[in-house]
């Protein structure tokens, strides 16, 4: 029976608050042969001393599981001894880690898939440069900094950046800037035909801006809590 509205209003405020929060965790997918993989990992670590210590880490075992249970246990101990804090496992078959202390780790993880690389440019420090068009259905995510795209962003494609987004071409899809940088980030594009633009939690869809901006070079920024889109030409 539905509670009368009055009863709801009078009920005491809840004491337990369950909230969702997202965290950044590193994800590693060790590949057999594991000995060679560890050699490579150690080389990486030597080049970035301290960068990975105490970092939360999710280990994808889908490739390593083929090596058997013992190899997986050695692998996980090996990672822990290097200072990684393993907080979750992926790709492990149910019985694989039974009766070990790894058993308690969560194996059902929900998160955004790693973005599909577009034209596989290596990530650059503080940002990313994408050559050529970003096609419908593709998603460019760079939380580290600015994204520069030389070419068009198609309808149905999306670009998400920690900093600003620069598009030397038509923006026909979505662009969200300022995931990290916040209100200082901006979006620039040489031709505005976007479906949606957003900066720092503010967003607007195409029906909210006038036809006079369509097809023009514009910048999008967050101005005292409002999203401002203005022509550059």
């Amino acid at each position: 029976m539905p509670l009368p509205l009055q009863a709801l209003r009078n009920s005491p405020p809840p004491i337990v608050h369950v909230r969702g929060r997202s965290f950044m965790a590193l994800a590693l997918a060790p590949e057999p042969p594991l000995a060679a993989w560890f050699v490579e990992l150690d080389e990486h670590l030597a080049g970035a001393a301290g960068l990975f210590t105490n970092r939360p880490m999710v280990v994808d075992l889908s490739l390593a599981a083929a090596e058997g249970r013992d190899a997986v246990l050695i692998l996980l101990d090996g990672l822990e001894s290097r200072g990684f804090r393993i907080i979750g496992l992926e790709g492990a078959s149910p019985g694989l880690l039974e009766h070990t202390h790894w058993e308690r780790l969560p194996t059902q993880l929900y998160g955004r898939e790693a973005p599909t690389p577009v034209n596989a440019a290596p990530p650059r420090i503080g940002g990313e440069l994408i050559e050529g068009p970003v096609r419908s259905g593709q998603s460019v995510v760079c939380e580290a900094g600015d994204v520069t795209i030389v070419g068009a962003v198609a309808s149905g494609a999306e670009v998400i950046a920690g900093g600003s987004i620069h598009i030397y071409g038509a923006l026909r899809g979505r662009a969200i800037a300022g995931i990290r940088e916040g209100a200082q980030a901006r979006i620039f594009c040489s031709r505005m035909e976007a479906e949606m633009v957003g900066v720092d939690r503010l967003y607007r869809t195409a029906e909210n801006w006038g036809a006079q901006l369509h097809g023009r070079a514009v910048q999008v920024r967050s101005d005292r809590g409002a999203l401002r889109i203005s022509a550059l030409d």
């Binding site: 599909t116 034209n119 596989a120 096609r135 419908s136 259905g137 593709q138 198609a154 309808s155 149905g156």
Partner: peptide, 25 residues
């Protein structure tokens, strides 16, 4: 027409990522 063109754009993206040739660089 727009829907066909957008779907084709999606397919081109897949041709550039999911095919043998694309995976081999």
């Amino acid at each position: 027409e727009v829907s066909s063109v957008r779907d084709s754009d999606r397919i081109i993206g897949m041709l550039d990522s999911k095919t043998r040739r694309a995976e081999a660089g």
